[in-house]
């Protein structure tokens, strides 16, 4: 065991523990609209971090992440409103289905690399939106699926209040975070970075690059499905607007603005963009333009994201 190698991870865990304690401790004294936004921030953070596994770690620039978010959101919406599924069952089904869809899509998109990979994943996102819009019998079409109740959580009961739902999401977020950390520190996580840096070298070292990428896509898809499921409970409504292209772009932006390949950066990016959206929408309808501007500013002045800026400032 390499003691020196554990120093940076230990610092990271300490920092995250402090941040989580603040997130947990502050909520009761904050106005409820802020807690609601924090809930949304946590859900998007789960999704953004899962995209970071692809974009930042494995170097797979997926623009189709909203598709897996959509699978999770619709699975939960349908199971809960039409089949009275429990919280656990809805979560599990959402994660499982997102993973399965992700595996099938991996077979398709992994035939391409670079810009072609981006185009195919973009097409996947558009297909997801198209299905949500057109497969009316399943998705409710334009009307979407309304009236998704808040979940009934073990030990808590009905998490209908702002705070109880927030803590439910926070608990799941902590679980996801622990799994993410384990993954990026694991041998498998290191192989993803190796693939990002040089696929041809990985092959010559004996790695089945396709397999590693496919597993990464399935894992990322499963986590995005979990985020989508929570989003359905959070929003109470799922429709084509939940899964449109702007959503996919927003995930990408959270990762890029936060700092790809850092895991923590995208978490910060998810919070920043969630809060920014709500603040901006008070003043203007043109949220997408603001997003685009944020992207240009990041690309020009902070190519490594906010985390990169913070590190440079130290």
């Amino acid at each position: 065991m390499d003691v020196a190698a554990t120093r940076a991870p230990m610092r990271l865990v300490t920092g995250l523990a402090v941040a989580l304690a603040i997130l947990a401790g502050l909520a009761p004294v904050l106005p409820s609209y802020v807690v609601i936004l924090m809930t949304e921030g946590l859900i998007y953070a789960i999704a953004a971090a899962s995209l970071d596994l692809l974009l930042g770690f494995a170097g797979l620039p997926s623009l189709g992440h909203s598709a897996f978010f959509a699978v999770g959101a619709y699975t939960t919406a349908i199971l809960v409103t039409r089949h009275q599924a429990s919280f656990g069952a809805a979560l599990a089904a959402s994660v499982a289905l997102a993973a399965i869809v992700s595996a099938a899509i991996a077979l398709l998109v992994l035939r391409a690399t670079g810009i072609y990979f981006m185009m195919i994943t973009l097409a996947v996102a558009l297909c997801a939106w198209g299905l949500a819009y057109r497969w009316v019998s399943l998705t409710g079409g334009d009307t979407g699926i309304v009236g998704i109740p808040r979940p009934r959580v073990p030990w808590v009961g009905l998490a209908s209040g702002t705070l109880s739902f927030y803590y439910t999401v926070l608990a799941l977020f902590v679980g996801c975070l622990a799994l993410y950390l384990l993954l990026i520190w694991s041998p498998f996580g290191k192989t993803l970075v190796g693939i990002r840096d040089s696929e041809s070298r990985m092959r010559v070292l004996g790695y089945n690059v396709f397999l590693h990428k496919a597993v990464a896509l399935v894992i990322a898809g499963a986590f995005a499905g979990l985020a989508g499921s929570l989003y359905a409970y959070y929003n109470g409504f799922v429709g084509p607007s939940t899964v449109d292209l702007a959503h996919s772009m927003q995930f990408v932006l959270m990762v890029i603005v936060g700092g790809p390949g850092t895991l923590v950066g995208p978490l910060i990016g998810a919070f920043a963009i969630t809060f920014l959206e709500k603040m901006v929408s008070v003043f203007t309808e043109r949220w997408v333009m603001v997003l685009a501007a944020a992207y240009v500013v990041t690309a020009l002045w902070a190519p490594r994201g906010m985390l990169g800026l913070l590190r440079a400032a130290r």
């Binding site: 991870p9 694991s186 597993v215």
Partner: peptide, 18 residues
């Protein structure tokens, strides 16, 4: 990474690499 290429450890996700 080169040393991991031939074994099964490269698929492990349960323990940190170090």
């Amino acid at each position: 990474l080169a040393a991991l290429g031939l074994g099964r450890t490269k698929f492990s996700m349960l323990r940190p690499l170090w």
